[in-house]
Simulated assay, not measured.
Amino acid sequence: MKQYLGALALAATMMSIGAPAAAQLLVGQTSGFTGAAAAGVKENTDGAKLYIDWVNAQGGVHGQSVQLVSLDDKFDPALSAENAKTLIVEKRVLAMFLGRGTPHAQALLPLLAEHRVPMIAPSTGAMALHKPVQPYVFNVRATYQREAERMIRHLSLVSVDRIAVLQVDDSFGADAVQGAMAGFDGIGKSPVMLEKFDRSKPDFSQLAPQVAKSGAQAVLFIGSSGAVAEGTMALRKAGSAAQVVTLSNNAASGFIRLMGDYGRGTIVSQVFPYERSIASPLVKEALELAKARQLDGVSPAMMEGFAAAKVLVEGLRRAGPNPTRERLLAALNGMNRYDIGGMEVSYSMTDHTGLDFADLSIIGSDGKFHR
Rank of each mutant, 00 (worst) to 15 (best):
G59R: 11
G60F: 13
Y51E: 02
D53M: 04
V61F: 10
Q67W: 02
D72T: 07
D53Q: 13
D46Y: 11
Q64N: 11
D76P: 00
D76Q: 09
D72Q: 07
Q67T: 13
K42V: 12
G60S: 09
A48V: 00
G60W: 07
L68P: 01
A57E: 01
Q64Y: 02
D46P: 09
K49W: 04
I52F: 12
Y51D: 03
D73H: 04
N44Y: 15
K74P: 00
Q58N: 10
G60E: 06
Q64A: 12
A78D: 04
G40T: 01
G59F: 15
N56G: 07
K49Y: 04
D72A: 06
V41T: 09
G60V: 09
N56V: 13
V66H: 13
S70A: 14
G59T: 02
A48R: 06
A48F: 04
A57Y: 00
K42G: 14
G40K: 11
S65R: 05
V55D: 02
I52T: 10
I52Y: 04
Q58L: 12
N44Q: 08
D72R: 03
V69R: 06
G59I: 03
D73C: 02
D46E: 14
G40I: 00
K74N: 05
H62S: 12
V41R: 01
K42A: 15
W54F: 08
N44P: 00
D46A: 13
K42H: 15
N56K: 07
D46Q: 08
F75L: 08
D73I: 00
H62V: 15
L50R: 12
L68E: 04
A48I: 02
L50Q: 09
G63R: 06
V66M: 11
V55M: 14
Q64K: 15
V66N: 06
D53F: 05
N44I: 15
L71C: 06
G40N: 11
S70M: 06
P77H: 12
S65H: 04
G60K: 05
L71W: 14
H62L: 13
S70Y: 03
T45F: 10
L50I: 03
D46H: 07
I52H: 02
G47T: 10
L71T: 06
A57W: 00
N44D: 08
V61D: 15
A48L: 04
Q67C: 01
K49N: 09
G60C: 12
D72N: 14
G40P: 12
H62G: 07
Q58G: 11
D72C: 09
F75S: 10
A78N: 08
G60R: 02
D76K: 03
N44L: 15
V61Y: 10
D76L: 05
Q67I: 00
S70L: 02
T45N: 09
V69I: 07
D73Q: 05
D53H: 04
G47I: 08
G59V: 05
D72M: 08
G40V: 03
A78F: 06
S70R: 05
W54H: 13
L50W: 14
V69S: 05
G47V: 11
D53R: 12
L71E: 10
F75Y: 14
Y51C: 06
N56F: 09
V66W: 01
V41K: 07
W54Y: 09
K42Q: 13
F75M: 05
E43D: 06
T45D: 04
V66A: 06
A57M: 04
V69G: 01
E43K: 05
V55K: 05
P77N: 15
I52N: 02
D76R: 02
E43A: 12
E43S: 12
K74Q: 11
F75V: 10
